[in-house]
Amino acid sequence: MNILIVGVGGQGTLLASRILGNLAAVSGYDCKLNEVHGMAQRGGSVVTHVKMADKVFSPVIAEGDADFILGFEILEAFRYRHFLKKGGTIIVNIQEIMPMPVVIGAAEYPKNLAEILKSENNAAAVDAYSLALSAGNVKTVNTVILGYFAKKAGIPYADMEKALGLSVKPKLLDINKTALKYGYALD
């Protein structure tokens, strides 16, 4: 299974990939992750590749080969939708973060991207921000999205919770478990 995580630097995509890496470990799969550090992280567009299978070669998901795209932000989900495999699933967090060219008026944030993703890519939308807020911490947006992903991907909740336990600090575990449940409870 190939999962592409896209978002904006600072949204917690790296933790999400670490949880998925641990999911691969508890599920007994081979796994490779690839992420971007350094300059690109400074509020830029960030992409993390997660691949799990019996044997993984390339650590990078090829365009058109992602089973899932987890879009932490609408524009970024749209930007990378060509990575989706035919019949793959996009989960898009309904959140808009204005990139600098939009902020300074050099470009416009395109309208209706989420609608296009829904109609053309059968994307599943989630308001992870609100759910994270009601789970008790807006920083759990990533865990909410992973909960929803686990449901869509048919991953047993217990496996996901185990992977979560291996990935987050003990004092943040309860709040993340709540966020995971909220995501998993979505249709």
Binding site: V8, G9, M39, R42, G44, S45
Partner: peptide, 19 residues
């Protein structure tokens, strides 16, 4: 052929910025 990103909708870039 390689799937390519959208040509019809102009997407604003998201360059890195000072924090």
């Amino acid at each position: 052929s390689m799937p390519e990103s959208e040509g019809d909708i102009r997407l604003p870039a998201r360059p890195p910025v000072l924090c």
